[in-house]
Design a protein around this nucleic acid. Structure first.
Lengths: 243, 243
DNA sequence: CGAGAACTTGAACAGGGTCAAGATGCGTGG
DNA sequence: CCACGCATCTTGACCCTGTTCAAGTTCTCG
């Protein structure tokens, strides 16, 4: 795969028009390629001196555990996403990262990352932009959990995932492969697994979406968008800001 | 006020040891000082070509409005905080910013910010760190709304605010001045104003905190921390990562 | 083919919302 | 300095969304 085609490079390029030199600096950032099995945490809260990763294939989730034993999934990451940036900057990880499926990712050592920022400031700005986009997603989840009811929230979530996957070529307007269990959906949406199940059934019975057999099939996109009050502005790249 | 004493410079300095030159670049970033009255939005969602701001005095809140007319407050900003960074990087604002009180802030034009990053890469890294800290707060709010009940959530919120205010010298271990109404608390915590009122009464009757007359008084810090399962790691600066 | 994981459904319950009515505080103008 | 009016706070009663518990059922994969 050529440098220009890496999904992460493509994403950053959407904000900052990267020069050949910047692209190769970005390429050198990709360290050792590692594989992780599903289910065993890559990084756990409180861990120090870990690396960041650029996700090449598979899905992971970032979550926090509460004292009562419940967990809240903050976000899922899909191919092309950057993992653990925040934890590297803080030195000690503030959340857990668990592979949902088998995962392949390039390690990005903390020292390399910081050194690269010093030498390639536009890359630092691009990463800041990418981090802001992640924050925008977390904000949208917060709004959903705080003020949307279970059905809207579920619909919104499925639409957001679809929009993100489409950007990296893993979804079409009619659906996508989705390895998440209903338990994970529940932990991401702040609901119980039982209730998620009921909401999914309703969405199916309304002819809007199905979430079954590892696939999401969107049967009525407009209806779903209307129900969820979905506005994908916060996910969009509208061309480089920095020329 | 000397450069080194600006709360924003102090905050960035906690992550990156800033040189004299970097500090003066940071200082030049502070543009025109502006004053905003309480209640009228500084930035509204969808707005383009607005500036970012560094908050000098007063409180503001960042919020989103939903189609149903409800709103979700994402965070409050206090003196020393950076406002609207995300919206500047996206060119079009993805949330509203409303002053809670009368506010004084230095304007930071988008172009100046990006130019400074190019010339002073360590400053870009420092701002990335500050943005990550903000994201960590949003994540903590998400976890609270998703998995904590109303009482824990309220307690957690009051503790977080206290910890943040203490960092800029606006709180002591026993309390702080707080201009928020119960309605704003409700919109921040994803609860109804009526229910917030009941929870505040309970916290008061339990001898933990009072939230009255524009003041928060903490009567039993340990009890509150235990109730809220509060771990302030995510707010801490533990010394410069970049020397 | 068997066993555990994931999904499904029902029934009872509770946390928090909504509606309604009053009390309290506070800024403004007279 | 007082009085009026509005915003904020307070409390009660009832209701609804989503939880919990429990008992199957259906996948999936070794």
């Amino acid at each position: 795969m050529s440098i220009q085609q890496s999904p992460f490079a493509r994403k950053l390029g959407a904000f900052v028009a990267l020069s050949g030199e910047e692209l190769s600096a970005l390429d050198r950032l990709h360290g050792r390629r590692k594989t992780f099995p599903a289910g065993r945490d890559i990084v756990h809260e409180g861990q120090v001196n870990h690396s960041a990763y650029i996700l090449a294939s598979g899905w992971v989730c970032s979550y926090k555990l509460l004292s009562g034993g419940t967990r809240q999934i903050v976000d899922f990451q899909i191919p092309g996403d950057f993992l653990g940036l925040r934890s590297v900057l803080f030195r000690t990880a503030d959340h857990n990262i668990e592979p949902v499926t088998k995962v392949e990712a390039s390690e990005v050592p903390a020292a390399d990352l910081l050194a690269t920022f010093g030498k390639t400031p536009r890359l630092a700005t691009a990463v800041l932009w990418a981090a802001s986009r992640d924050e925008a997603m977390v904000v949208e989840h917060l709004v959903g959990i705080g003020r949307r009811d279970a059905k809207e929230r579920t619909a919104h979530f499925l639409l957001e995932l679809g929009a993100r996957l489409k950007l990296v070529g893993l979804a079409t307007a009619s659906g996508y492969a989705c390895p998440l269990s209903q338990y994970m959906l529940a932990d991401a949406l702040g609901l119980s697994a039982v209730h998620i199940n009921r909401e999914l059934r309703e969405l199916r019975e309304d002819g809007l979406v199905t979430f079954q057999h590892g696939k999401v099939e969107i049967h009525d996109l407009d209806g779903l968008v209307a129900l969820a009050d979905f506005d994908k502005t916060y996910l969009d790249h509208d061309g480089p800001l920095l020329k």
